[in-house]
Amino acid sequence: MTLKTLYQKIGFPRLIITVFFIALLIGAVVLNIPLAGLWSSIFVRFGMNAILVLAMVPGIRAGIGINFNLALGIVLGLLGAILSFEFGFQGATGFLVANAIALPLAAIAGYLYGHMLNRVKGDEMTVSNYIGLSIVSFMCIVWIILPLTNRELIWPMGGKGLRVTISMENSFGEFLNNLWAFPKGATGASSFVFPTGMIVYFALWAAIVWAFNRSKAGSAMSAAGASELFATSNGVNVNRYRILGTMISTILAAAGIITYAQGFGFLQLYRAPLYMSMPAAASILIGGATLKDARIIHVIIGTFLFQGLLVVALPVINVVSGGDMAEIVRVIVSNGIILYALTRGGEEA
């Protein structure tokens, strides 16, 4: 393989980010930042975010583009986690109950949302942004008026409305992180721990999506997404498959935020769900997806690169500049890569 074809295969954005990532790793070594801890953080953050990134796949394949409205699935995932918390479930049970409540709700919401997207064909990505804003605002009201009683959920003073950030220490916080984690007993920021449970859990969802893509329904859905004319003339009900894609995307968003929250250890309510779509979209685009084509491998590469960049950038840049540069890097990378993909349209991003 010549250098040129290799370059074309990797693509400009991935090349830049990979080079940047490696430069940061070298920087970390030079600055004596312990790499073992950084690698565990990368794996943990990969596991936390990958399902949210995976949620982009069915949306893109079904032809609704990047689902900027992950917030819809996210708020329902949060609702599931909160109710599970309220009922006092912990650990594995808590995690399962949260999903059992959230996923069916997400399926229903995704179905309705899919119907709506069928009425705004061609403008899905614009509309999904505004739906996201509306849903999050609406849920701000819901978080305040939900009649919950658990003292850890509601404001300590006044006793009405949910807190902005809820610690999951007494619920199922870090349940997946610690599941089958090895080496056992390793603690502290500088030692290496592999979050087996979290990675396996992601692999489970990825396998489901992968299998779906190879099923008859998945194949029909990609055809509907790739060319509405082709699909229609070959007897595919395009609108139905767009709804299906939206549903799966919303369900994955709900499952994704529950995984994210348990890894983070906190439930973030109110405006927080708004800030989840952009990094997820950026990740899958970095991974090599376009506005028309997305695969599991894009999710894995993209999430790894994007989260790796953030994890390594934080200590390295903070040591070098002294300020909170890591957040700025995150914003520049995520918005930049989305802008790049949008200007390239359906081409290779």
Partner: peptide, 24 residues
């Protein structure tokens, strides 16, 4: 309208050939 209706341009020849028989 071969390019618009007749083909999935960004999919393989084999998938294009099989699609109708597989779907219907």
């Amino acid at each position: 309208d071969r390019k618009g209706m007749g083909l999935l341009l960004d999919d393989s020849i084999e998938n294009n050939i099989a699609f109708a028989a597989q779907e219907i």
